[in-house]
Design a protein around this nucleic acid. Structure first.
Lengths: 360, 360
DNA sequence: TTGAAAGCGCTAACAT
DNA sequence: ATGTTAGCGCTTTCAA
């Protein structure tokens, strides 16, 4: 069945199709009678305007594109949901696509978006932060808001204070009396990873503890990688003098792997090891034991990204904007005071001094 | 910066824009020299075709819409990712939107999709399965493939054998020697819930065990609801004679809540209670203990849905299709043999007899 | 081999 | 208050 057009309505109502257009847009001077009549006919015929034709004329589509990492990743999905809800609140549609881990087909996908003449693009695929192509393709083409750095492009950014995230988590562990603190990080080439790591380092430093690379293991953000990383950590330190009593894990998913591995090794949490994650995913409150973690407001970030993008589009803002959302620690049972440690009073540190200039 | 059009290229190359069109589409007879020349100019100018204009003429958009439940739900997200990947493999774009729990704004969203003249729609929002509007809006308008029933619409369907899922899980528990088996179900008005429950009932029946409504608790698919449901179950059966030694939980997320609650009550899994879930989400392998569950191939289902939809569109298939993907049990440590139970040999049952006609 | 004409469904400025 | 004209960027048919 074919769609009904303005002309169909016009023919049926016995007026010109331009008049119908006016009525349906609520503009221009049309007599109340014709207006009512046309509205009725349109309704009877089940008219739905053609956004393609409209977009062709108006030069905008009320559609924005999202380039995302695999959003079966819980955290990314939150972002996308937040973005989508905000978009729809403003009567916009979202065209969305994952790109694979290597980010290899990102160019083809961005082209697909440009072909469809999206009004703007939200970038939420950290694996692209090294990709030179993306910046080139987007350069001066479209309004863009990104969750991450884009090489070669002065781009508006939305994100969280990642350095603070690492700092908070580690600081919390220190305040519980721990002095040997291991960390499981994300992929080393990611900025989030580096920033959270730097936050960890600065917290150690603030407590006068030397940074020990022996206590750092890399993961892929996936459960299994957390599981494996903690085992490597355990095995390596068993034969060295680099013991640890707590682990700061850079995301909750890997932390779940850590809990699982420790359990299998017969280690207790938090008695033997305190564990702190990042993200505060929904099930973090129901791991065994419940996970202490840093809450990252991904849903809000998604909404903020779209709101900013829409502002940029409608107000033709050219200056790159920057929005940082706050994070906070959620204390649960996976972190505990170190046995026979007295209350530790750490030298306090002003927030300014711990925040790097170039975030994320 | 504005987009470059065929005319821009034509002007630059000194030919008519229709010729440029032919070259870019690789059609018609154009001399090799002009062809090469035009291609070069187009490349220099960075031409990207306008899909709106193209769609206006060709009457299709190479874009399909997905109406999804909140896809911050891990299982739904898997479906969407699978769908998106398949779509892009076929050079299609996906416009996606969540609808809220009540499904209240679904009509507005579907209209948004129709306005954009998507070529077809994938429905993946079980909370709509009672919604009369959806069927009406979609009736004879667009090709549709749905994950769930749509009242008033003969629609192509893709899904899994939900009855078999409940049957398998329960059967597995029975084979471990359990006789008192509780179940935590999803929202009662959902078909999946009913089918998985029926599978549970049929399995009990196959072992000659009477169905006891006392042993059924309802949840919302969320972690907390699983947590609360098992507590209700525990409390209620403590004062009655309806004991249980195993629980079939209708999704993994609730099962995680169950594990958490049992742990807090000092109950051991699987020694005191065997737990079996549904879905096989990524972290199911790393809960404590690792969760026995029924694997539901959501990623594949998403891909299948899109493939079917595209077939329907290109081949103008009118007969509603139906595809059921198989599920299978994944045995892990959360389910174990009931203490001092001898090996149980259950009467076997043919698959045909347990499969209801109208699935899902 | 190339170009001109028409039209997809719509909007907007202008004329009646 | 209504209709006319023009055009958004493209494809397709037909004429040169």
């Amino acid at each position: 069945m074919s769609h009904v057009s303005l002309k169909d309505i016009a023919a049926q109502a016995g007026v010109s199709f331009q008049t119908v257009s006016k009525v349906l847009k609520g503009k221009g001077n049309v007599s109340p009678e014709t207006r009512a009549w046309i509205l009725q006919v349109a309704d009877e015929l089940g008219y739905v305007p053609n956004a393609l034709a409209r977009g062709l004329v108006s030069q905008h589509t009320s559609t924005i594109g999202i380039v995302a990492s695999d959003f079966s990743d819980y955290v990314l999905a939150q972002f996308v949901v937040g973005a989508e809800q905000e978009a729809r609140r403003q009567d916009q549609c979202i065209i969305i696509g994952n790109i694979d881990l290597a980010g290899s087909d990102s160019e083809r996908y961005i082209r697909l978006l440009i072909e469809r003449r999206v009004d703007g693009i939200v970038l939420a695929a950290p694996q692209l932060e090294q990709n030179q192509q993306v910046g080139k393709m987007l350069h001066d083409q479209l309004p863009v808001v990104s969750l991450h750095h884009v090489p070669g492009l002065q781009v508006s950014r939305v994100g969280q204070d990642q350095l603070q995230t690492g700092y908070m988590a580690t600081r919390h562990i220190l305040e519980l009396g721990h002095r040997q603190i291991a960390t499981i990080i994300g992929p080393r080439d990611r900025r989030v990873t580096q920033l959270r790591l730097r936050g960890y380092q600065q917290a150690l430093e603030s407590a006068g503890i030397a940074y020990d690379p022996e206590l750092v293991e890399e993961g892929t953000w996936q459960v299994e990688s957390g599981y494996e990383a903690i085992l490597r950590l355990l095995d390596r330190t068993a034969t060295s003098n680099a013991h640890f009593t707590a682990v700061f894990v850079q995301n909750d998913t890997m932390a779940i792997g850590v809990l699982s591995a420790l359990q299998q090794r017969g280690c207790r949490v938090p008695e033997d090891y305190s564990i702190v994650g990042c993200d505060d995913i929904a099930i973090a409150a129901h791991t065994i034991p419940p996970l202490t973690t840093v809450h990252i407001p991904m849903y809000e970030t998604g909404g903020t990204a779209v709101r900013l993008l829409l502002d940029i589009i409608t107000q033709r803002i050219v200056e790159p904007q920057r929005i940082i959302l706050p994070v906070h620690l959620v204390e649960r049972a996976s972190s505990g005071r170190l046995d026979n440690s007295s209350t530790i009073v750490l030298p306090s540190m002003k927030k300014e001094t711990i925040c790097g200039k170039d975030q994320n």
